[in-house]
């Protein structure tokens, strides 16, 4: 999968996101999450950024749970099969229309999960695009005009793995001071200092090496759009038009 153009997976994920949103179907959302998982599991390189997909899945799961709970507890009642009933929390009169608690129906549960799933699909599809593309390669195809964006990308993508490293290093040092449960604050301070100085260092290094000086950038290894890139994008286009045709 080395030869893929860095933009391919980004275009692909944007198209699928379009399909999921326009179809508004939890089936398609579920399938696309599964598909993204397989793709990342199968094709992502063994690199720091490849872990972002699994991170995005975790965030997605968290959002799904919260979204479902909130959807069940607060909002407009949907009539249907009754599952169980919660007491209604009395609210001041100026909050008319909002209701906390009440009858929980199967329909209400499903609609909450359905909306949650779509959000998870969107997040995980972006996660997949990040995981499947080397940010450094992406940087090379971004126009030099958005110079700040380039610097920010490099710093952000190298900061995350550095952050993970620093956290474990500091936690270990703290353990050694006999501090078995170091407080969040005591870790955050050295961590912030560490990552800030690293980022500044990196920005200085990029600057010293002439990044952003020339309006045009040459390429050591040409990055070309190939048949397989078109195939991936075409597949996504097909899914999008399928979604538009069937679910509308």
């Amino acid at each position: 999968m080395k030869s893929l153009h860095p933009l391919t997976w980004w275009i692909w994920s944007l198209l699928i996101v379009g399909a999921v949103i326009s179809a508004n179907s939890s089936w398609l959302a579920g399938i696309s999450i599964a598909g993204a998982t397989i793709l990342v599991w199968r094709f992502a390189a063994d690199a720091p950024w490849a872990r972002s997909f699994w991170f995005s899945l975790k965030i997605g799961a968290f959002i799904l749970i919260i979204r479902t709970l909130v959807g069940l507890l607060i909002g407009v009642p949907i009539p249907g099969t009754k599952l169980f009933e919660l007491p209604i929390l009395p609210l001041p009169s100026w909050l008319a229309g909002v209701r906390i608690g009440g009858v929980i129906t199967q329909e209400r549960l499903f609609s909450s999960i359905h909306e949650g799933l779509i959000i998870v699909a969107v997040i995980s599809l972006f996660g997949a695009a990040v995981s499947l593309t080397s940010p450094h390669k992406l940087l090379r195809v971004t126009p030099i005009v958005i110079y700040e964006f380039g610097v920010a990308t490099v710093i952000a993508t190298s900061a995350l793995p550095n952050l993970v490293q620093s956290i474990s290093r500091i936690r270990r040092a703290r353990l050694l001071r006999g501090d078995e449960n170091p407080s969040w604050r005591s870790i955050a301070l050295p961590l912030l200092e560490d990552s800030l100085s690293r980022s500044l260092e990196l920005a200085a290094a990029m600057d010293a090496r002439g990044y952003g000086v020339s309006r045009k950038r040459s390429r050591y290894r040409p990055i070309s759009w190939q048949g397989i890139d078109s195939a991936v994008v075409l597949a996504a286009v097909l899914i999008l038009s399928f979604a538009l045709a069937i679910f509308r």
Partner: peptide, 26 residues
């Protein structure tokens, strides 16, 4: 802390790419 890319060869080329030096020279 100053490395900008992930592969040795690309790291060497990074500065020259930024200065828009022709690929064959690079």
């Amino acid at each position: 802390q100053g490395f900008v890319t992930d592969i040795v060869e690309e790291e060497l080329a990074f500065g020259m790419e930024a200065l828009n030096i022709a690929p064959d020279v690079m």
